[in-house]
Every structure is written in structure tokens, then in C-alpha cells.
Design a protein around this nucleic acid. Structure first.
Lengths: 210, 210, 210, 210
DNA sequence: AATGAATGAGCGTTCATTCAT
DNA sequence: TATGAATGAACGCTCATTCAT
């Protein structure tokens, strides 16, 4: 660990703190984790957290903001403008799943911890979470447009699909943890295949439309 | 409000407490809610909670157990033995979605709160949550069997489908809260239609297999 | 254990309670023991204690009174009026030691517990303890009178001797507990012999008067 | 009173706390005294006690350790290596009595409070108390050796003598409290004289060997 | 810039005590 | 007579937060 009492530029210190906070909040939960725990994990003293971030709540908010930025960025980077939209939808979903699988701490803070706290906890937290949802929705909208540009799913349905994707990703993370022999990619493969199986069965008349 | 200091049999009081606890834990989160809050919501004094349930943790565990029982029971009741399995799958899923939508507090405690607390919080809580997942998995397994009895999805894939259903239901609950004009049933309708749209597009070649 | 809900005369119930209380207070200490513990040990319900004794403090006081009576009685019974006083002193001391050794719970409540509570705990407790001290003092006074009736130790010195006897008995009880192979009688034998050794050494000049 | 919120080095504060705790525990008893009481007596706030000492039990243990050190040190300092053992015994006893008389709070905590708590309270407390007993026993052993070096009392009897000394000192402290006109020294004088009286009477045949 | 020292406020828990039956 | 049901009050302990250096 780095030696104590180092003078570091504010920006660096702040990143250290948020890194530590994401890790700690993810593993212990927002309330169980103490500010002391975070400071210790960041290798600094408690008052530093207050000097830089102001309060535990603001520290948590900062975590949410940064992690929301990271997901949004990852998803955006996966949608290539020139690409045929359908492929874009699938590859973007793959990127999103992979992000969730590869950044469990980030996701746990952003999604599970943020939701478990009282809804009125912070308007800002809700807003940041919304940005992620909106981004995924936008991705779905883009990916479900026909080549000609017409929509085949309404805005509202796109939202629903986005939520399903998010919920599925969140829920499957637990499953991944319990099955270490699977990877994020193999999981996506399975999900896609399952969709195709469904399609097949409809085609063959195995499944009657409900 | 009923007059205080009523002498009620233990069984009744205990149910009142758990009812109140589910409500309070769901809205404030496990750590934010104090035992006093729960007692007040149940119309009794704090020591009663300890006399009957022993500790905050045991109170929470009791909530999880009871709510897990309720979901499992609801899903089981929806699977009718004589029915063709495919219909069974759809109707059972519908029942599950409706349960989640109609019992937001129960679900929030059972799923969101239970997950947000550190995994080591209580073995029992994890076990109770598992029972729900297993039940849904069993339902999916039953519903994805061909009429002849052969399986078309592996055990593992059935688990994945169950998780997707759970995650989707959980995630869509937020969406329902933000769209009060929709009902659980109309939501399920949308989800089913979206699935069919996907099928259509595959059939027409709009969507290439990924 | 006796069957519950028996109607017993007050006197009997009260004795049961005090018996139980002495046992419980002695083993757990006054504050650590709860009224519930005492009630349970007596095979009755908590409110009974309050109906009969009124409060925890009064229950404790009752214990002290009864046990003080018992010591006083035991010591008195050991002092036979006709007996030459010197023999009386020794035999009474022996009786006192034996009582302490044979009634550890009583003594622990009467002496150790009563002293450890704040001095202002109860005037009555102090008074009851005083009765024991006074009784032992009287015994010492009687035992240190010359055959002719003249005193060889002052009232004040008799008090001191009594205190020494009490303190020694109390302190040696621990020693007895740690040496189960010794009995109260063998211990008294040792103490007496030690006194004689001291005398011998004075006589032979081994020990210079301090 | 000193102004609040003084920043003092840990070592100093810790001593203040233990000083206050000894005083408070001695006067109110371990259970009756609250940590708040101790904090107040030390002129600090409650959390400080926990930051430095960790728990009420550890605070009490710290008191026992420190006071045991003090008695042991006092007794050791009184035994001068060159001195003839017999004189050593008497002077060391005198020092011990004086210590007990001059440090009533210390003694009450070390002996009375420590004993009144359930034996299972803390192994450490029992161990610390043992150190005192052992020290006094060693002193008695040293003081009852003949000039030539031979023993005249067995190890076991030395232990008994030590217990008697301790018990007598403890018991006589109450007597001293009730007779403020006496001092520790005058009390020791009385005790020694009483021993001599006994010797005289044996010599003159007034007291028959029991 | 950085931290050891310090505290106000609150929570989980217990217990002596009372009420209603 | 006897008890299950119920509570007010207090205590041990923690933690977010601030002050003084």
C-alpha cells in the first residue's frame, strides 16, 4: 500500500476515494459500510472524505454518477453508427451484459444498492439511474428500427424491452456467480439460443400463441 | 386507530408485526427502518417485537419466510395439473407478474432488500430466496416440456429462463410505478406481444439470427 | 418439577421464591439476574413475585433478612450458655465457618452481593448485615472473657476480631472452592494449628514482637 | 472545571478514564454505574470510552489490571531484600493494610466488585485478582521462613495465611469507615496487639488449645 | 493538505414493572 | 390465585460529522 500523508492532486485523491467507495459499498451495502471503512480502503483518513466529498450521501451519489457514466459510455461505444441496426442491438446488448458481468461492484452499487435505499434518498441518484435506463432504451429503439427507418416497436415498448434487458442482466449476475464455469459471453450465447428455440417452436406450432 | 394496550393472542400480534415490517422495510430499506418504526406501524411498543421475534434480524428473516411462502403458493396455485404445459407456463408467469405487481412491498422485501444486504447477512434469508427461484424454475421446466414429455430446454437453460423472468418482473415493477395507467395484465400483454413481434420478424427475415 | 398453577398458601410460595432468589442472586449477581430468572427458578410466573414481594429490591432485601436470620441462629445455637467461654469461642467459630462453607449461596448473597451494591442501596440490607456482625461480635466478646468474668479484650477489639473472623471466612471460601479435597473442618483445623505455630514461635523467640 | 473539547494525547485521556472508572465502579457497583456516568466523571463524552477502551467490560478489565499492578507494586516495594524475613512480613502487611485503607476505591473495584460479578465474567479479571493473591502469598512465604532458610509453614498454609490477611483487610475496611477516628496504622497496631494477647493467654494457660 | 481527537444523536436491546383476564 | 400480554425507561454501543492542530 502507498505510504501515508502523501500530497496528491485533488483529482487523483477523489478518484481513489470513489474507487474505494464503490468497492466497499458494493460488498457491505450502503448502510453497513461506514465512512471509516471507505477511508481505510482508500488509504486515507476520514476527514479527507468530508473535505473532498462533503458527506456520506454525497460520496454515494458521486459513486452512482461515475458508474452511470461508465455504463452509458460502454453502451454508446458499442453502437456503431454505420452498422445495420439489428446487429447493433445484439452487439450492444452483449456489451452491456459483459459490462455488468465484468464490473460487479459498479453494478451492485448502481443498481442494487441504489434501489434498496429509500426512494426519496436522493433525487440525484434516481436521476443518474434514469440516465442508464434511457441510454439502454435509446439503444433498443435504434436496434429495432427497420432498415427503412420505420419503427416496429413503439417508444413505450422499447422502454419495456430495455427494462427487461436490465432486469435480466441484473438477475443473471447472481446466476453467473453461482456458476463460475460460465462466462458472460457463454451466457449471452445461451440467452440468444433460447430466443431462437422459442422462435422455432412457434414456427413448428409447438407453442400456441397465448 | 384502535385503542392501545389491547390484549391480543400472540398469533394475531405476530402477524400484525410481520405485516407492518414488510411495509416498513420495503419503503425505508432494512437499515434505514428502525425497529421503533415497525412497532409504531404495527400499533404496538418496541419491546413486543423483541418478545415475539427476538431481534431485528429475526424479524426480517420472518418477513422473508412468510413472503417467500406467499409467492411460492401463488405460483403453485396457478399451475393446474391437467392443463397443457405451455398454457400453464403462460398463465403461471402471468400469475407471478401479477403477484409482483400487486404485492410490491412483499417483493421489495423479498428480492431487493434481501439482496442489498450483505450476502452473509443470514443463511436463512438466502435459503428462502432460493426457494422462490427454484419454484419458478420448476414452473418453467414444466411449461417448456413438449406434449409428449420430452424436454426442449435443459435444466440449466430453464434456470436461466426463470432468472430472466424474475429479473424482468422486478425491473418492470419500477416501470409500472412510473406508468400508473398500465396494469399488471396490460403489461403482460405487451410482453407477450413483443415476443410475437420478434417471432414475426424472424419469420419475415427482418431479423437475422445473431 | 411441580405442576404449574398450583394454589399454595402464601407462606409456602414466599419461601419458594426466596429460596430460588438466593440461589439465583448468588450465582448470577443481583443485577445480572432478572426477576424472570428468579420466577422461573421458583417455578412460578413473574407477576407472582410482584404480588408477594413487591419489587426486585424488596425481594433481595427479603433474601438478606432470611439469610441473616439463619446465620444468627446457627451461631447462637452454637454458643451454649453453660459452657466455658473459651471452648465456646472456638466451637462457635467452627460453626460459623462451617455455615459459610455449607451455605455458599446464602453467604454470597448476604455478604458479597449485599456489599457490592451501592451502599445506599437499602438501609435495610445494611441493617440486616449489621445484625450478623453484631452477633459474631457478641460471640467473640463472650468467648474472650476470662473465667472470672473480666474482659481481656475491649469492646472495640472484640469488634475487630469479629471482622477478622468474617473476612477470613469469606476469603477462605474461595480457597475452599479451589481445593475441593479440603473440607470446612479440615480448614478450621489448619487455621487453629497456624495460630499455635505462631504462639510457639513467639515462645521460642523465633518471632520478635513487631 | 476544565473547558470541554480539549485535545489531549491518548495516553492522558486513557488514564483519566480509568481513574474515573475506578471511582465510579467502586461507588455504584459495576452494573449500576453506566458508561455515561464514567464518561461524565472523566469529563468526556461517552463515545471516547468506546474509542479508547472498546467496551464496558474492557473498561472494567483495564481498571482491574491497573489496580492489581498498583497493589503488587506497593507490596513488592515494601519487602526489602536485606531485611530479616520476620520484620519483612510485618512491614509488608502493614503496607498492604495501608494500601487498602488509603485506596478504598481501588480495593473495592479490585476485590469486591470483581468478585460480585459472575465468575465467568472475564477470565482476565480472575487472572489479575490471582496475581494479587499470589503476591501476598509469596510475601507470607518469605516472611515465615526461619533465619536459616527452613520453612515453618507449608506452601498450602502460606496460601491460607495470605487469604486470611486479604479477607481481614477487606473486612476491616468497613470497620475503618465506621470509625473515622482510627487510622490504618492504629488498626494494624490493634491487630498485632490482639495477636500478642492471644500468645500471652496461651502462655498463661488461660486458653486451652482447642 | 491532512489527521488525531472528540461528540450529538440515534439505534438495538433489555428489564423491572403493570394491566387485563 | 395466577398469568400472558404489554410498555416506559434506560443502557451499551456505533457512526456520521466536526474541531484543533
Amino acid at each position: 500500500m502507498v505510504s501515508k500523508n502523501q500530497r496528491l492532486p485533488r483529482e487523483v485523491r477523489e478518484r481513489q476515494m470513489i474507487d474505494a467507495a464503490v468497492r466497499v459499498f458494493s460488498r457491505s451495502g450502503y448502510h453497513t459500510a461506514s465512512v471509516e471503512d471507505v477511508a481505510e480502503a482508500a488509504g486515507i483518513s476520514k476527514p479527507m472524505v468530508y473535505i473532498y466529498l462533503g458527506s456520506k450521501e454525497r460520496l454515494f451519489t458521486a459513486c452512482i454518477h461515475r458508474e452511470a457514466d461508465r455504463v452509458v459510455e460502454a453502451v454508446r461505444a458499442a453502437v456503431h453508427p454505420g452498422e445495420p441496426p439489428e446487429l447493433g442491438l445484439w452487439s450492444a446488448l452483449r456489451v452491456f451484459f459483459r459490462f455488468v458481468a465484468d464490473n460487479r461492484d459498479s453494478w451492485a452499487v448502481l443498481y442494487q444498492q441504489a434501489r434498496a435505499q429509500s426512494a426519496a434518498f436522493s433525487k440525484e441518484v434516481a436521476a443518474a439511474r434514469c440516465r442508464v435506463i434511457d441510454e439502454i432504451t435509446a439503444m433498443v429503439v435504434a436496434g429495432t428500427r427497420l432498415p427503412g427507418g420505420e419503427r416496429i416497436v413503439s417508444e413505450r415498448d422499447a422502454e419495456i424491452l430495455a427494462r427487461i434487458a436490465i432486469g435480466a442482466a441484473d438477475s443473471l449476475i447472481d446466476w453467473l456467480l453461482e456458476h463460475p464455469e460460465e462466462s458472460a459471453d457463454s451466457l449471452v450465447e445461451r440467452v440468444v439460443n433460447l430466443a431462437l428455440v422459442g422462435v422455432e417452436r412457434y414456427n413448428t406450432g409447438d407453442i400456441p400463441p397465448p
